Computed example of a mutant assay.
Amino acid sequence: MDIKTLQNLAEVAAYKTEPRRRLFSANHEEIARGLTTDIYFIRTREILRHMGLEKTQVTAEIFTGGSGVLAGTTEVKNLLAGLPVEVWALPEGAQIEEKQVVMRITGAYDVFGIYETAVLGALASSSGWATAARRCREAARDKRVVCFGARHVHPAVAPVMERAAIIGGADGASCILGAKLAGQEPLGTVPHAVMLIVGDTVEVARVYQQIMPPDAPVIILVDTFKDEAEESLRVAEALGDKLQGVRLDTAGERGGVTPGLVREVMARLAQAGYPQVKIFVSGGITPERIPLLIEAGADAFGVGSYISGARAIDMTMDIKAVNGRPVAKRGRIPGLTDAPDLQRII
């Protein structure tokens, strides 16, 4: 790699953060240098070098602490690319089970050991987010699911989270960078803020329909000022057949979006001659709520905190062979685990 990693404890002690650092998140160079690693990997490097064992060849396996959907392997591949190691892994999007080996790394421990913290973190967090998105995808069946979780996590990891959601099955994401990293365009219309500034939902809807690109979906937020059914009808009458959908994001203080509300909005739109208008629902959406809302008539879902707040799937790295000799810590079985589905990625 072009970036030199931390070599010893003296370099750790000498390292100083910038006093005017804008954000506390690690940038790409800091991760590649090993600055996000646990300190004990630097101590390990010092010990192995002192004993002349830094070139010892090992094979390490990474296994899961739970079941779900694997994500994050592309970042791990990018992080380790260029190192004299061989890496095998399951593909992103693969279903994984507890204790399953998802990755195997062979090389000198001094070369890749410093990245254990980063590798495990990338896999654990992304897999947790992907798994939550998969649960929503399964609950929604053929209905669309869009990840709205960026506002619930640190901006440095928001793109990682939303890309992982797409890996897990979300149809798209609102975070610009997250969607772009997944090879998509971001999805979303407008927030309550523009409604509050302009002062009228219908006026915003008219301008939105007039000035947005032709491929921008005409889906209007209808819970800012008036009863959702009343506002939906006002917008439908103003835009006619140009209105594709309305979004219900009713505040929790008013009970949130309920199946009853969805049924009423859908029925009133149909009675008024606008059966083509779809109902997009957001705000506190979970896999448990999705089927009930679908039954009531919801057509698509914006899911935020359920995905962004998903628990990471613990990942553990174990050395299973040293210079070709099977080894393991107590409680684990020495030697390589049978993992025929691993594919070489480096």
Rank of each mutant, 00 (worst) to 15 (best):
L261C: 10
E18S: 06
V87I: 06
T5N: 03
A81R: 00
L123Q: 07
K320P: 14
L6H: 13
V157W: 11
L48G: 00
V277M: 04
G82Y: 07
S127I: 03
A133I: 06
V58N: 02
D142W: 11
S126C: 11
Y40R: 08
R22T: 11
A13S: 11
R49G: 05
F280V: 13
D110V: 04
G309R: 01
V12K: 11
R311N: 12
A170M: 05
L342S: 02
V246T: 08
G199P: 06
A118W: 14
Q271K: 14
Q244L: 13
K226D: 02
D110K: 02
L70P: 00
P326R: 11
L292G: 13
R163T: 00
A139E: 02
R254Y: 10
R43L: 15
E185F: 07
A32R: 13
A133Q: 09
E237R: 10
K55Y: 13
P287I: 06
F148D: 09
A14C: 08
A328G: 03
Y115D: 15
K242E: 08
S125C: 15
M317H: 04
L336M: 05
P259L: 00
V145C: 08
Y306M: 02
G66K: 01
D241Q: 12
A165V: 04
R330Q: 07
E138H: 10
T44Y: 04
G128T: 05
S305V: 00
A238H: 06
G52Y: 10
R151E: 11
R325L: 14
D314E: 05
G178M: 14
Q184T: 00
T224R: 06
R144L: 14
R141K: 13
A94Y: 11
T5E: 04
Q343D: 05
D110Q: 01
P191L: 06
L181K: 08
G273I: 02
C136V: 04
M103L: 03
L70D: 10
C147A: 14
K278F: 10
V235W: 12
A139H: 03
K180L: 00
A71P: 07
L53D: 07
L292I: 07
R311S: 15
P334W: 10
A300C: 06
Y208G: 14
E185Y: 03
T74A: 13
L83M: 13
R137A: 05
V87R: 09
G331A: 01
T286R: 15
T37C: 05
E228V: 05
Q209P: 08
A339V: 02
G199F: 01
I313W: 01
E253C: 07
A173S: 02
K278Y: 12
I346M: 10
R134C: 08
E230P: 15
V153H: 04
H192A: 15
V145F: 00
L83F: 14
R234D: 09
